[in-house]
Design a protein around this nucleic acid. Structure first.
Lengths: 144, 144
DNA sequence: GTGAACTAGTTGTATAGTACAACATGGATG
DNA sequence: CATCCATGTTGTACTATACAACTAGTTCAC
């Protein structure tokens, strides 16, 4: 067992532990917007609207899953659909005013929670941790 | 927006992205053992047997959830129960031979996948990434 | 030693998130 | 036009999960 193996083992364990807990933590913090709803809504906000198909591709979700998630967000009044005039199959999705507001609140509170969790980290450590995570995820995306 | 804020933002985004994808990736890689079953079985193996209550506490799961997961693992023949002679309420759970074997296979294949993903990382980067993850999760556990 | 309070685990019920297959409908291309 | 493709919805099924109600065993106070 090399040092390298040890590190990989720890990374594996910690990533797994984190993944297991993330959903439950998110749900406890924000009952009004699940982790999935949150990321979908955030993507809509970020992209200034997009199609259900784009969301499915981006998040590796089935189109039926996205369809139901969007239906739920619409029912909550957080998302609205605008049929594309050039292609009547397509619905371009946008956050509503209220959706954008809720998103902003959840984002702010998530951001604060992360800041608190990372409060005693040096700027250098934060920077490196952020780079490592980005690098790890980018590599994984290419494999997916 | 300070550099510090930027790093926290990236950490948040990347951790969220990772969490969203982890379950599906695990399920695709190992249809025979879900991420949850895997971690429970691994914990049993690691601890050389423990109680359902211990699993629930360790993974922040409801005891009913653990009860059903264990029932499923038992049905698959991967876990056996031994009633504690000193306290007949207690069932000490152990991996069976077959359970240990499947666990070993899945562990090996997960380990290999992680090694591949991290193949082009320097030993120093791996070491630091592992420390950061451990530090992050330890801090979060204290807040949970 | 008996009853109250506690602990371990199971089962009933409900919900979220997910996939896959079948479908409807609109567009593109031979 | 006829066929094929793209977009999205709906039916169905399954997994993971929580909470509440329950059973059964243990401990402790009196």
């Amino acid at each position: 067992m090399t040092h390298r193996d040890d590190s990989v083992e720890i990374i594996q364990q910690e990533m797994t532990a984190f993944a297991r807990r993330a959903r439950a933590t998110a749900a406890r913090m924000h009952p009004e917007l699940s982790l999935v709803s949150y990321t979908l809504l955030a993507h809509l906000d970020d992209q200034r609207g997009c199609r259900a198909t784009d969301l499915a591709a981006h998040y590796f979700l089935d189109k039926s899953t996205v369809s139901r998630q969007i239906a739920a967000l619409e029912k909550l009044g957080f998302v609205e659909r605008r049929v594309d005039p050039d292609d009547h199959r397509v619905q371009v999705l946008h956050p509503t005013e209220e959706g954008a507001q809720v998103l902003a609140n959840v984002t702010a509170s998530r951001r604060q929670a992360f800041h608190e969790r990372l409060a005693d980290w040096s700027e250098e450590d934060l920077d490196r941790f952020a780079s490592y995570l980005a690098r790890y995820n980018a590599a994984q995306e290419r494999l997916d």
